[in-house]
Amino acid sequence: MRPIERLCVYCGSSLGTDPVFAEAAVALGELIVAEGLTLVYGGASVGLMGVLADTVLAAGGEVIGVIPSWLVESEIAHPGLSELHVVETMQERKLLMAELSDAFVALPGGFGTLEELFEAVTASQVGLHTKPTGLLEVGDFFDSLLAFLDHAVAVGVLRAENRRLLLTASSPRALLDQLRAWPGRVDQLTPGTPGRRG
């Protein structure tokens, strides 16, 4: 089992219209505390980011936030975190979050969430790190995205083994189990259908 002490979570600074998004953030936050993990995230107090951080803090967990100085007001930097790192650029934010973390998970979000998710997967693909990356399936939010990735494999622009770099599950526990079972290299993955649910 891979030791995971700090889990980086990418998610939206908006709540979205479906309450299942916030419910998933709460469930993941509760699991993080139950497992004794530290949350690393984007530092905001609003949207799904705020729900996630508040859940972990309310249960006595540790939360590390990383936010660019120019987003402190618009994303409303969380005032109650265990640690808050204020950086200058989005690139610095992503780099520091990656350095502080042992694994990466995405919840629903927009362009920023998807950029962070795919940067983490791409870095794994090209060998910049050996940390696992997962996507928590929430309702049908990611269905079209996962179908697109499968289509990219089908038309030959994405290798099947690289598609398997993005772990997916429909429950926080199942996803954490997959992250811990991650072998560290794509060539050690068991061939099969990617995106298995748990």
Rank of each mutant, 00 (worst) to 15 (best):
M1F: 09
R2G: 07
P3Q: 14
R6C: 05
R6G: 06
V9Y: 05
Y10M: 04
S13P: 07
S13W: 03
G16M: 09
T17D: 14
V20I: 15
A22P: 13
A25S: 04
V26S: 08
G29Q: 07
E30F: 11
E30P: 13
L31Y: 06
V33R: 14
A34E: 13
G36E: 05
G36A: 03
T38R: 03
L39A: 07
Y41E: 05
G43I: 01
G43K: 04
A44C: 08
A44H: 04
S45I: 00
G47D: 05
G50D: 02
A53S: 14
A53C: 12
D54W: 11
D54A: 15
A58T: 14
A58F: 12
A58E: 15
A59W: 01
G61V: 07
G61A: 11
E62I: 13
I64M: 09
I64T: 11
G65M: 02
G65D: 04
I67N: 01
S69E: 12
S69V: 06
L71E: 04
E73N: 13
S74I: 13
S74H: 02
P79M: 03
P79H: 05
G80D: 11
L81C: 08
E83W: 03
H85T: 06
E88P: 00
E88N: 10
T89E: 06
M90R: 02
M90T: 03
M90H: 01
Q91K: 14
L95A: 13
L95P: 00
L95K: 13
L100H: 03
L100F: 03
S101R: 04
D102E: 06
A103G: 02
F104C: 06
V105F: 04
V105H: 02
V105K: 05
A106R: 07
A106P: 06
A106G: 07
G109A: 05
G112D: 06
T113I: 11
E115P: 12
E115G: 10
E115H: 11
L117I: 11
F118V: 08
F118D: 10
F118L: 15
V121C: 05
Q125P: 07
G127R: 07
G127A: 09
H129Y: 09
K131P: 09
K131I: 12
K131W: 12
P132V: 02
L135N: 10
L136R: 07
E137H: 14
V138R: 10
G139R: 11
D140T: 15
F142C: 02
D143M: 07
S144K: 12
L145H: 10
L146H: 11
A147K: 15
F148S: 10
D150H: 11
H151L: 10
A152D: 08
V153P: 02
A160R: 14
A160D: 15
E161I: 12
L165F: 04
L166K: 00
L166W: 02
L167G: 06
L167Q: 14
L167N: 07
T168M: 13
A169G: 09
A169W: 09
S170K: 12
S171D: 09
P172S: 05
P172C: 08
L175M: 10
L176G: 01
D177P: 06
L179N: 00
A181Q: 10
P183T: 05
R185Y: 13
R185M: 12
G192F: 05
G192I: 05
T193C: 10
T193E: 15
T193Y: 12
R196C: 14
R196H: 12
R197H: 07
